[in-house]
């Protein structure tokens, strides 16, 4: 088991203090206390928003690259670009709902900074998808190879598995020797096909969220780590701001440009990177 970073607690506390200071954006009067019922409602709404996005992310290709249609949705790798879009959408949406429920305010809650955040993440997501479509990546080669084997989609993989099961049932019924030999060959051929399929998709199957969004086929990718780190840090600032001020934080232009630059770096480096 990996040893935990020994100063993690102290670093987290420092980040939170800095985030709170950043989110307050200067000396202002403390926010009014919120009564328990709206607070509970806000917490439930926020949790619900996160749960919905989480479930969709797990069960569908909403946050996944979907580079190979031959991979079943739950095994598709997470996409950093799509994940960033969902991250800011969820934070801004949940923050808005929480502030609305807790304070009754809905006008002026979303500031231009939040719109910029969502715009930057959306542009990153769309650009990442565009890069995937335009460039001829190892995933495209795998896709071509699998199609040449008759596996156009995951449904074809399921079909081959069903054909194996069907032939195994026929074989179990002890047919004539010639039929048994034919069935055994057909089963073997289909197992080989599935083995070739598993070999081909192995580099493109999800290895968990963190590894998917921080690595490509060559391993850890700095441009991905950088983009993820700034997104998470500004996300913490955002959450702390909403909790402590009951308002969405004011990010100054430099912070937004910083996020934009790190995401642009991610998209720029994505073009030559081997794809996971």
């Amino acid at each position: 088991m990996r040893k935990p970073f020994p100063f993690a607690g102290a670093v987290a506390a420092m980040i939170l203090r800095a985030a709170a200071a950043c989110a307050q954006g200067g000396a202002e009067s403390p926010p009014p206390a919120i009564s328990p019922a709206p607070l509970a409602g806000a917490v439930v709404a926020v949790l619900l928003a996160f749960a919905l996005v989480w479930i969709a992310a797990r069960r569908s290709t909403l946050l996944k690259d979907n580079l190979l249609p031959q991979i079943e949705p739950r095994r598709q790798p997470y996409s950093l670009g799509r994940w960033q879009m969902a991250f800011w959408f969820t934070l801004v949406f949940a923050g808005f709902v929480a502030i609305w429920i807790a304070t009754g305010q809905y006008n002026g809650v979303v500031t231009s900074q939040e719109l910029w955040l969502m715009g930057i993440s959306a542009a990153s997501g769309v650009s990442a998808i565009a890069v995937d479509v335009v460039k001829d990546s190892p995933a495209d080669a795998a896709n071509r190879g699998l199609k040449a084997l008759g596996l156009d989609t995951y449904a074809d993989v399921e079909r081959v598995r069903e054909e194996i099961r069907q032939r195994e049932r026929e074989l179990a019924a002890q047919p004539a020797p010639e039929s048994a030999q034919r069935l055994a060959l057909e089963i073997r051929d289909r197992h080989l096909l599935l083995a070739a399929y598993e070999n081909a998709i192995r580099p493109f199957v999800s290895e968990g969220w963190l590894k998917d969004v921080t690595t490509d086929l060559n391993g850890a990718a700095l441009h991905r780590v950088q983009s993820l780190a700034w997104t998470l840090l500004l996300g913490i600032v955002f959450v702390v701001g909403v909790i402590t001020r009951h308002a969405m934080p004011q990010f100054d232009a430099s912070l937004l440009i910083l996020l934009g630059i790190s995401n642009a770096g991610y998209v720029g480096f994505k073009y030559p990177e081997p794809q996971q």
Partner: peptide, 13 residues
Amino acid sequence: PDTVAKAHAASTL
């Protein structure tokens, strides 16, 4: 197999 792609996939494995 009827194609080079299929023959390659099976025989390399």
